[in-house]
Simulated scan of single mutants.
Amino acid sequence: MNLIPEQWHSARLSLSDLKENEIPAVQKLYETSRYMNEWDGETYKPDHIQNCLFNGNLPPGGVLRNYRMQTVRNRENASLIGILSVYHGHPSSESVYLEFLYIDSNIQKQGFGQELTNRFTEVVADLGYREIRLNVALKNWPALRFWTQCGFDRISGIFGDRQISDNAFANLELVKTL
Rank of each mutant, 00 (worst) to 15 (best):
M1Y: 14
M1W: 12
I4P: 05
I4G: 05
I4A: 06
E6W: 15
E6G: 12
S10C: 11
A11G: 04
R12N: 06
R12V: 01
S14Y: 10
K19S: 10
N21R: 11
N21A: 07
N21L: 06
P24Q: 05
P24S: 07
P24M: 08
V26T: 06
M36I: 08
M36K: 09
W39M: 02
E42L: 13
E42W: 14
H48F: 15
I49H: 01
F54L: 11
N55R: 14
P60H: 12
N66C: 13
R68I: 07
M69Y: 11
E76H: 14
N77I: 01
N77G: 04
N77C: 02
V86N: 03
Y87Q: 05
E94L: 11
S95E: 01
F100V: 01
L101I: 10
Y102L: 02
I107M: 02
Q108V: 02
K109C: 07
G111A: 05
G111C: 07
G111N: 04
Q114A: 09
N118E: 05
E122R: 10
E122M: 09
V123S: 07
V123T: 09
E131T: 08
L134E: 00
N135L: 15
T148P: 02
C150P: 03
D153L: 14
S156F: 15
G157K: 12
F159G: 06
Q163H: 13
D166Y: 12
A168G: 04
N171F: 15
N171D: 01
E173K: 13
K176C: 03
T177E: 05
